[in-house]
Simulated scan of single mutants.
Amino acid sequence: MAQNPRGDNSGPQAEPLLKVGGLKKHFALTKGTSLFGGQRKVVRAVDGVDFEVMKGETLGVVGESGCGKSTTARLLMQLIEPSAGEVVFDGRVVGSRELPLKEFRRQVQMVFQDSYASLNPRLTIEDSIAFGPRVHGVSAREATARARDLLARVGLQPDRFAERYPHELSGGQRQRVNIARALALQPRMVILDEAVSALDKSVEAQVLNLLLDLKSDFGLTYVFISHDLNVVRFISDRVMVMYLGKVAEVGPSEALFDQPAHPYTSALLSSMPSMDPDHRTEEVPLSGDPPNPIDPPSGCRFHPRCSHAAAVCSTIEPPRVLRAQQSVACLIHQRGSGHPQALPA
């Protein structure tokens, strides 16, 4: 897959469109307290996440299954209520009086992985796209015109597809409809949660190129969640790596892929398949399963699986520090942390 010739706005002049601070989501396993009166156990799906999304950029989000990527996306959209933390969109707190959820969701839309489950089987394609604008006060005539225009923009001829139902379309066509529906409210940001992972490679490439064209045409900002590292590298300006509910590393796409700073990022990138026979993976880059999010390890959450772990890693939770262009949560890069590979204070 060719590299993305990004004509983006994510340089030094860009400003944060979205700020996330201390975001947490803990799912209780049982109601009330435990049998012996102790605190009830919780699944720490997202456990203190901080990051920014700059205007006009594509932020890729990667990590193993269960690391909290999709939960973070649903927290951003307020589809589930956070246990703690704050989401600030363009300087206003989401869900507050200054930015009610209805106004926020008009400006931020989401595309899900399952293209069929995302569409109402009883509505035509045209009605599905026009539904959102009508809910937000757009006249029926204008909403229908907008739906037909967006169908054309995503490569589906309105005369052929407007009156069809979801079951009459292929997976790639349905995902194009979902993208058109997300754009119907003229949002500023789109969150794409595994939006191309269910598509075959030829259709995936078409949808990715479509997303790049739409981003340029509409001045969009993307949060792109995927397990496919090659796709993330192709489409993203910056990449955020998550592990067990926390952010391990954030940095520019090319810098992070070429020189990963966190040991987990290195292991994750080592799992990428290569067609080059001189770059075969002869050793398993990462062994074992992620720890239990109900009872995560103390200190650095990655230390039980990390080949660079030292005794201090099990006692001190690493803060995120700047290392070149990347922000990384690893004691190796923190001066005076006590790790044998860290520089002295």
Rank of each mutant, 00 (worst) to 15 (best):
Asn4Gln: 04
Ser10Asp: 15
Ala14Ser: 15
Ala14Val: 12
Glu15Arg: 15
Gly21Glu: 15
Leu23Glu: 10
Leu23Asn: 10
Phe27Ile: 07
Phe27Arg: 07
Leu29Tyr: 06
Lys31Met: 15
Gly32Asp: 02
Gly32Leu: 13
Leu35Gly: 05
Ala45Trp: 08
Asp47Met: 12
Val49Pro: 08
Val49Phe: 06
Val49Ala: 14
Phe51Asn: 07
Val53Lys: 02
Glu57Ala: 10
Glu57Val: 14
Thr58Phe: 11
Thr58Leu: 07
Leu59Lys: 01
Val62Met: 10
Glu64Trp: 02
Glu64Met: 01
Lys69Met: 14
Ala73Asn: 15
Leu76Gln: 03
Met77Leu: 11
Pro82Ile: 09
Glu86Arg: 07
Val87Met: 02
Phe89Gln: 14
Asp90Met: 10
Arg92Met: 14
Ser96Thr: 04
Leu99Asn: 03
Leu99Asp: 06
Leu99Gln: 08
Leu99Phe: 04
Pro100Met: 09
Leu101Arg: 07
Lys102Met: 12
Glu103His: 05
Val108Lys: 05
Gln109Phe: 03
Gln113Leu: 08
Asp114His: 02
Tyr116Ser: 11
Ser118Arg: 06
Pro121Gly: 10
Ile125Met: 06
Asp127Ala: 13
Ser128Trp: 02
Ser128His: 12
Pro133Lys: 01
Arg134Gln: 11
Val135Asp: 00
Gly137Phe: 13
Glu142Lys: 03
Ala143Gly: 11
Arg146Leu: 13
Ala147His: 13
Arg148Asp: 03
Arg148Met: 06
Arg153Ala: 06
Asp159Cys: 12
Glu168Phe: 04
Glu168Gln: 12
Leu169Lys: 02
Arg174Asp: 15
Arg181Val: 00
Arg181Gln: 07
Ala182Arg: 08
Ala182Tyr: 12
Ala184Tyr: 04
Ala184Val: 03
Ala184Asp: 07
Leu185Gln: 11
Gln186Pro: 02
Pro187Ala: 14
Arg188Trp: 15
Ala195Val: 03
Lys201Asp: 00
Glu204Phe: 01
Gln206Asp: 10
Leu208Cys: 14
Leu210Met: 13
Leu212Thr: 01
Ser216Tyr: 09
Phe224Lys: 05
Phe224Tyr: 10
Ile225Gly: 13
Ser226Val: 00
Ser226Glu: 02
Leu229Asp: 13
Asn230Asp: 04
Asn230Pro: 01
Val231Arg: 05
Phe234Lys: 05
Ile235Met: 14
Ser236Arg: 00
Arg238Ser: 00
Val239His: 03
Val239Ser: 04
Met240Gly: 02
Val241His: 06
Tyr243Asn: 11
Leu244Thr: 03
Val250Asn: 04
Gly251Cys: 12
Ser253Ile: 08
Ser253Asn: 14
Ala255Pro: 05
Leu256Gln: 00
Leu256Pro: 00
Ala261Lys: 14
His262Thr: 08
Ser266Glu: 09
Ser270Ala: 10
Ser270Tyr: 09
Pro273Thr: 09
His279Ala: 14
Arg280Ile: 14
Glu282Cys: 00
Leu286Ala: 01
Gly288Ser: 14
Pro291Val: 13
Asn292Phe: 11
Ile294Phe: 07
Ile294Asn: 04
Ser298Trp: 12
Gly299Arg: 04
Gly299Asn: 08
Cys300Asn: 08
Cys300His: 14
His303Trp: 12
Arg305His: 01
Arg305Tyr: 01
Thr315Val: 15
Thr315Lys: 12
Thr315Met: 13
Ile316Phe: 00
Leu322Pro: 12
Ala324His: 10
Gln325Cys: 10
Gln326Asp: 06
Leu331Gln: 02
His333Ser: 05
His333Val: 03
Ser337Gly: 11
Ala342Trp: 11
Ala345Ile: 12
Ala345Arg: 02
Ala345Lys: 04
